[in-house]
Design a protein around this nucleic acid. Structure first.
Lengths: 138, 138
DNA sequence: GGCATGCTTTACGTTTACGTAAACGTTAGC
DNA sequence: GCTAACGTTTACGTAAACGTAAAGCATGCC
């Protein structure tokens, strides 16, 4: 048995289509240590693990994180801290990341509130204008 | 009356300190059309309006928006759409921005959930190790 | 009056995150 | 045997968001 095909596997173009990125980007993420596909000769073969990682990458990007930050977060998922000191440091990183996300949540809530206000105003203004137009036409 | 000092006013360094950015960044935002301070001769004088704008800029950056996107959002606050077609377009932009923010919220909730799991595991592991250490020491 | 402090403009440098092009290999189908 | 589809490496290009350095003006103060 040459290749264990029990797992799901993906070519680079396939993955690119699924996540809406270019193959160039995927190779770039590999350069930066975010992905580590197997090889079939020269060709890259992506398994379930890299599929998950790419999902994490895309999510991280939507949240505005840099690739460095995203790699740090991915490393958190993979980490298996053996020493207690490492473990404490690890937990510290988790908490820092959570606080940042919570701060983002607050920012979003604020912003959504303001957009709501703006839209309510605009809708009212629009309704007013449309009714005038109707009157004028009637 | 040369200068109306009824409003709050800020120098560039002052503003930079308050928001934790460099004066270079503040000038850069002006170049990009995000700020438009008055002048006292050569010197920039910032009022309440630019103070607010800078707050919006920083919030936008925390949320991972580009300066272009941030300017679009700021323009939303300032816009006074006179035509109905403009108004509708404006409302469309508001809604698009809100959907993006909601998507970010979902991403954050997901991520926070995963970080929670990781931290719970880690805390358990840590407690285990510490208790063993205590036993060994006792 | 000379020096420090704070501001100004101009301009080149840097990092991040890819885009784009060149030149090449390999497998499938006609 | 050719070409189309898919992949590869190498390398230069680019947009965004500033950093950094150079050179100069104005003001306060000792």
């Amino acid at each position: 048995m040459a290749l264990d095909q029990t797992q799901q596997m993906y070519g680079i173009a396939e993955l690119a289509r699924e996540f809406g990125v270019t193959t160039r980007a995927i190779r770039f993420y590999e350069d930066k240590g975010l992905l580590s596909p197997d090889r079939d000769g020269q060709r890259r073969i992506y398994g379930a693990r890299d599929h998950v990682r790419l999902r994490l990458i895309m999510r991280g990007k939507r949240l505005g994180f840099s690739l460095d930050e995203i790699r740090e977060m991915i490393d958190l998922y993979d980490a298996d801290p053996s020493e207690v000191s490492q473990l404490k440091l690890f937990i510290g990183k988790l908490q820092a990341r959570r606080e940042q996300l919570r701060s983002q949540q607050e920012d979003i809530v604020e912003t959504l509130g303001e957009l709501d206000r703006l839209e309510t105003q605009s809708q009212a203004l629009l309704a007013d204008r449309e009714s005038r137009r109707t009157k004028a036409a009637g």
